[in-house]
């Protein structure tokens, strides 16, 4: 028996080395491979940075257009998912009861479990559908990507809002009625501000998810060399898609280095957002544990 314990604990220790090793290797390898390329030239190529930022001057061999495309997709996804998700979370936590509640939460959970490629396929099908019916020359575009990405992160917003609201201590819920506020006023002036950090944490996490997902944008309008998108109905470049195409189709060592640089930029972006969400979440929990 003691022998079994011993072997088991040694195996567990070995397994526990893995997460740290994976992370260290990932960061170390990306840093090493993109060394000498991590500067403004990676972003803007030979275009002066200020021209690219302010005058939208074309950038040829930098990843700035891809960063900008990702930013647009994330912003559009936020516009779709944030209001809808917060309102749905409020309904789930404050109003929905009984069988409707079960059904609603099942649908949201189901959506959260859907593979992201299905959201991309949904967008693609939407375009096929529109072509056959209302808009014969509809094509995949930035707007479509943002919309589908919004639907992908919607359940994260709903769940964050729901769990922040329903995790509030009971005495806070009594505060509103005791001040003579009605239900809607209580939600708006007491519950939502109290749950604010939790909801914000969910928002930041959703944005991180929208920034990293590749399958959705691959089917809904991201292309390799589009430059800056001129309108919402234009094709665009995106950081994750740039990384994917570089892995498959790079021609020169310089392009490969830029790919590693882009991977590092994306990694920093998503882990940064993740850590921010984590801090907000912890702040929220601490506040209500003391209170």
């Amino acid at each position: 028996m003691t022998r079994f314990h011993h072997v088991f604990s040694v195996l567990c220790r070995l397994c526990a080395l893995l997460p740290g090793a994976v992370l260290l290797f990932l960061v170390g390898f990306l840093l090493q491979q993109s060394r000498g390329r991590l500067d403004l030239q990676l972003l803007f190529g030979d275009t002066p940075p200020l021209d690219a930022l302010i005058h939208f001057a074309p950038v040829w061999d930098g990843i700035w257009p891809a960063c900008f495309g990702t930013f647009c997709v994330v912003a559009l996804a936020g516009i779709v998912a944030v209001p809808l998700g917060i309102l749905c979370g409020i309904h789930l936590s404050e109003f929905a009861r009984g069988r409707f509640r079960t059904m609603l939460s099942f649908c949201v959970d189901l959506l959260a479990g859907m593979p992201s490629i299905l959201m991309g396929l949904f967008g693609f099908a939407l375009i096929l559908f529109l072509r056959h019916t209302l808009l014969p020359d509809a094509g995949t575009c930035l707007l479509l990507s943002g919309f589908c990405m919004g639907l992908l992160v919607l359940p994260y917003m709903v769940n964050a809002t729901y769990s922040s609201l329903s995790g509030l201590p009971h005495d806070i819920r009594l505060l509103g009625p005791s001040l003579g506020l009605n239900r809607m006023q209580t939600i708006r002036h007491i519950l939502l501000p109290s749950a604010g950090r939790g909801i914000l944490s969910g928002l930041v996490l959703s944005l991180g998810r929208a920034a990293e997902d590749t399958a959705v944008i691959m089917l809904t309008g991201a292309v390799a060399n589009a430059g800056m998108p001129r309108s919402l109905l234009d094709k665009y470049e995106a950081l994750p898609f740039y990384i994917y195409t570089t892995a498959a189709e790079y021609q020169t060592p310089e392009e490969l280095k830029a790919g590693f640089g882009a991977a590092l930029v994306l990694l920093i972006l998503t882990t940064g957002l993740f850590l921010a969400a984590h801090l907000l979440h912890n702040a929220m929990e601490r506040r209500w544990r003391q209170g």
Binding site: P19, G20, V22, L23, L26, F29, L30, G208, A211, E212, D213, T214, P240, I243, Y244, T246, A247, G259, F260, A263, L266, L267, T270, T271, L273, F274, L275, H278
Partner: peptide
């Protein structure tokens, strides 16, 4: 470390 692993983009895992 495990929690941080969830924030690594899939495409970065794939690329490396």
């Amino acid at each position: 470390a495990v929690k941080l692993m969830t924030s690594v983009p899939t495409v970065v895992y794939g690329f490396v």
